[in-house]
């Protein structure tokens, strides 16, 4: 079992986001909103380009938390605000850098605060998780 200490900074992890992964997530999640796949459509509704599903970004962060916790079964709470879109141009691998800090540790849980960055911009706000120890 991993020991967590309040204030501890956990090792960051880098995820790759590209158009192929957005299509794969759309199929796996059932969220086929064309703003996540079709550049022409995304631009027609005023977006800069195709953007990642907020839930895809959050899902990747969830993978990071599950890994820290040791299993998805240990994630009790998880929340985030979608503050900035993750723009995904064609043919580009966008890097999402996820890191976390242990806020406090109770008898059987740890609270984490998470930072998710793309191109040096925070894409999630108030990202928090509670994991079982």
């Amino acid at each position: 079992m991993t020991t967590f200490i309040a204030g501890q900074e956990l090792a960051p992890k880098v995820f790759t986001i590209n158009r192929a992964r957005l299509v794969q997530y759309a199929n796996a999640s059932g969220d086929q909103n064309p703003i996540h796949q079709n550049e022409e459509f995304a631009k027609s509704v005023g977006l800069e380009n195709v953007i990642a599903h907020g839930m895809f970004t959050m899902g990747l962060v969830g993978q990071y938390i599950s890994q820290i916790a040791g299993s998805s079964a240990k994630v009790r709470e998880f929340s985030a605000r979608f503050t900035k879109p993750v723009v995904v141009p064609a043919g580009i691998d966008v890097q999402l850098i996820v890191s976390a800090t242990v806020v406090d540790v109770d008898s059987d849980i740890a609270r984490l605060e998470i930072v998710a960055m793309c191109s040096e911009v925070k894409v999630l706000g108030m990202a928090k998780a509670v994991i079982s120890l």
Binding site: Y25, N27, G59
Partner: peptide, 12 residues
Amino acid sequence: ALGESETTVAPP
């Protein structure tokens, strides 16, 4: 789709 290898329990 999330790069998670554990499948005995669903991702959060």
